[in-house]
Amino acid sequence: MAASIIEMIVFPGFVFLGVLGMIFEYVDRILYARLQNRKGPPWFQPFADFIKLAAKEDIVPREADSVMFKVTPLLAATATVVASFYIPLWGPAALHSFAGDAVVVIYLLTIPTMSFFLAGWYSTSLYSTVGAVRTITQLFAYEVPLFLVILAPGILAKTWSLSEMAAFYSAHPLLCLSNVVGFVVAIVALQGKLERIPFDIPEAETEIVAGTFTEYSGRLLVLFRLAISIETVVGAALISAVFLPFGYGLGAAWGFVVFIVKIAFVMVILAVFKTSVARLRIEQMVNFCWKYVAPAAVLQLFISLILSAFVG
């Protein structure tokens, strides 16, 4: 019981993932700045933002549904932390695992997006509502490709448990090369999930202020930001567990270093991606996802199916 609580709260729960999330938020911000030829924030900026926001007053709009308004940030943060328990972090085995946990992880990672939608919807402000609708529209565009490419490597490994998938691919590292298409698709879909440029349409600053989060302030906003930071790390960990299953047999210390390097690698790709393009319009985003990303995901599925006939 005590061990579970520590697991939940400290390691690898809220505190650890929160700190890691903020460290990677800093990496993202500094890289974004340096690519733009700016200096960027000092290393403690995400922590300073956190403390500052946490010290501020929560304001719940009179028109908003006060219960939903307060619950959704917590829901978002919790779901991402829970998802991390099923993802292999530095060993091939995740903290908990069972057959089919890959599906559960993807569903758990959908909960933050759903809670953004609910938060925006129950804020009842115009900007929030538009943001909420955009969040959900976008979800339908990237979720299917993401699902397909996370599960496709599972076909080859003949398991839908992330831990077993990681174990299979670290035993057959060459087979990873068959998942390159999936890796690219997953990066694009993750960018959409995290609502970053070019898919930051639900919070497009110049159109709908802060979208879903327009009415949020103080501790509730900080929970949302924390949830996004954690989601970034968990998403990157998911991608690296499925597509980059290297360095698992090195023991805890080196395994941890390799884990950090892998997440950093994914983060760098995400940051460079974010820097080099403009924001799309919502219908362009949906078109792009169904026209290019979804067929690519199906292609990955076929590659895995064909290969599994030979490997099996």
Partner: peptide, 22 residues
């Protein structure tokens, strides 16, 4: 092509920032 500025961006990673710490 998307990401036209990519080469320019990567070229600037190692350069000194253009901003001044006023």
């Amino acid at each position: 092509k998307p990401g036209k500025m990519l080469a320019e961006l990567l070229r600037h990673v190692t350069k000194r920032p253009a901003t001044t710490q006023y």
